[in-house]
Every structure is written in structure tokens, then in C-alpha cells.
């Protein structure tokens, strides 16, 4: 494996972490905002635009090769390890958030749609993945 590939993977992981954080915050706003305003139409448009905009920004300007998207693992041992640990953090976070929803859902059931809950779970997953990668990447 060449040094160029390693540097690409490091860059890709950094971009991926920030992209996950950005998407997590966006999805969190989308899932919570309709509760406050009783409408989700403007947020769906905003969410779609934010997703496409951030996707283009991170993928096109990311500087990594297109073949990266076909790899589910990193070749570098340390990057692959922290990626795997981050997914474990995601699963744990998802379990806790689902447990919280299970306990408190009766109070929210009338106002919350399935779309909002799905967005909330995705937001939790994205946020935890991004934070975990950045936290583990620190020197």
C-alpha cells in the first residue's frame, strides 16, 4: 500500500467525520423543528438542500479518489480499528436512544411521526460516529 493511499485514507476519514457531524446536526434540526412549529414542509426542503450541498462539498472537494467509496474497510490498521470502534459506539448510542424513546414515547406519540423518529435515530448515529472518530483521532 503506497503512502499516497494512506494519506488519502487519513484525509477521507477526517472528511467523513466532519460530514457525519454536519449531517447529524442537520438531521437533529429536521427531527426536532416540526415539534416546535407543527409543520415540516420547509424543513424537508431545507434538509434536502443541506444534504445535497454538504455531500457535494465533502465528496467533490474532499480530494480523495472515487474508488474509496467501494471499500468498506480502511487498509491502514489504526484507521480501520478506530472506524470499527466508532461503529460500536454508534450501536451503543442507538441502543440507549431507542431505550430512551421506549421509556418516554407515550408522552410524545401524538406529535411525533415515524419520519421524525427515523431522522432522530439517523442524527444520533451520525453524531456519535463523527464525535467518536474525532475523539479517537486526537494525538
Amino acid at each position: 500500500m503506497s503512502n499516497h493511499d494512506i494519506k488519502n485514507e487519513e484525509k477521507f476519514m477526517g472528511q467523513n467525520a466532519w460530514f457525519s457531524l454536519f449531517m447529524g446536526v442537520t438531521l437533529l434540526i429536521i427531527s426536532v423543528y416540526p415539534l416546535l412549529t407543527q409543520t415540516s414542509a420547509p424543513l424537508l426542503f431545507f434538509g434536502t438542500a443541506a444534504f445535497l450541498g454538504s455531500f457535494c462539498m465533502f465528496v467533490i472537494r474532499g480530494g480523495f479518489t472515487w474508488k474509496m467509496k467501494y471499500h468498506l474497510t480502511y487498509k491502514d490498521e489504526y484507521l480501520n480499528t478506530i472506524d470499527t470502534i466508532a461503529y460500536k459506539h454508534v450501536v451503543l448510542g442507538l441502543l440507549f436512544s431507542m431505550g430512551g424513546v421506549y421509556l418516554f414515547s407515550d408522552d410524545l406519540a401524538l406529535e411525533v411521526s415515524h419520519t421524525m423518529m427515523a431522522s432522530f435515530y439517523l442524527a444520533v448515529m451520525c453524531l456519535i460516529y463523527g464525535v467518536s472518530i474525532l475523539w479517537q483521532s486526537k494525538d
Binding site: 494512506i6 487519513e10 491502514d76 490498521e77 489504526y78 494525538d139
Partner: peptide
């Protein structure tokens, strides 16, 4: 050192500080 053995700099950094046990 990372370039010499084709790993990421973070690998060297975390191995040196005993946060990561290499293969």
C-alpha cells in the same frame, strides 16, 4: 517513520503512547 513503513502517522503516534497495540 510512518512513510518508511507505509502506515499512517496516527498509527506511529498512538503506538508510541501505548494507546494502540500494533499487529
Amino acid at each position: 517513520l510512518a512513510d518508511a513503513i507505509s502506515v499512517s502517522r496516527k498509527t506511529i503516534s498512538t503506538v508510541e503512547t501505548n494507546r494502540f497495540t500494533p499487529s
